[in-house]
Amino acid sequence: MILKISQAILLVFLSGLSVFIGVAEISPLDLLDLSSEQAQIMLSSRLPRLFSILVAGSSLAVSGLIMQRITRNRFVSPTTAGTMEWCRLGVMVSILLLPQAPSLLRVVCAFVVSFCGTMLFLAIVNRIRNAGIILVPLVGIMLGGVVNALSTFFAYRYDIIQNMASWLQGNFSLVIAGNYELIYIGIPLMAAAYIFADRFTIAGMGKNTASALGLRYSAVLYTGLAIVAVVSSVSVVAVGNIPFVGLIVPNVVSLYRGDSVKRVLWDTAWLGALLVLVCDIAGRIAIYPFELPIGIVLSIIGSAVFLILITNSKKSYA
């Protein structure tokens, strides 16, 4: 309980910090007496940014957790399974077909494509599971590269390569009221993940065990996948690609909490939000008054953490 309170305090403190960083100066004291301009900045930019960070971070971490349980592989996540690349392909398709499409339509398109793509990945994983824990993410990343190559082919033909690069880049600086609200879809999905938590734990023991325990394995599988695909699609459309969160957060949490989904869910969501928040703040301070996009900060921090994780875990899992 004390742990939970201190976790919450840390998050609230950093959230407060996040709100008061920016080019337009607003100090905590101003809160008592906000000028209308300051209130405007708060409501239309700073708070939306904070909320989207918190929701995106926690929902991506949770979806990474779900994927790792379903595939029974710690190194699988939307980043290493090609899910993010499928989302991009979906967004690109929607833009090519309907240039003026509303973001909801883009999300639907990205969802359909990424759901199918991740199914494909799972089909492949089932064939190569015995080949070793590291081969699975390797194949996943390669599949992501393939999808990228496919998107590039079309992007090149229709001359939207540079636009594509900007979707690849997760970036919270463009978040303003009116264009980010879709991200809230992540909240009910996290609740769903909590309700289904025990089923994911059982599904993680394998199809046979799950069936023996009376679980409809494929139903759980599809539910999990759907959650992952929706969360990834929403975040790609609303804020861009946020890499590595779904990969490293569940791994770090399982180091001190074990593997039961229900037990780790809160910590995973918390650490995901915290990680993205910290990286966002770091990116905003690093080259102030300019910003490093969160995608960059996470690529660098995430790859370093990931390398440490596999070095340490190699002996016990490989």
Binding site: I134, I141, Q169, I296, I300, T311
Partner: peptide, 20 residues
Amino acid sequence: YFVVLSGLIFGMAFGGLSSF
């Protein structure tokens, strides 16, 4: 396999930097 995976991860980091 670890070497390959590290190469890949480095590649992803470079990819992030270049898309920036």
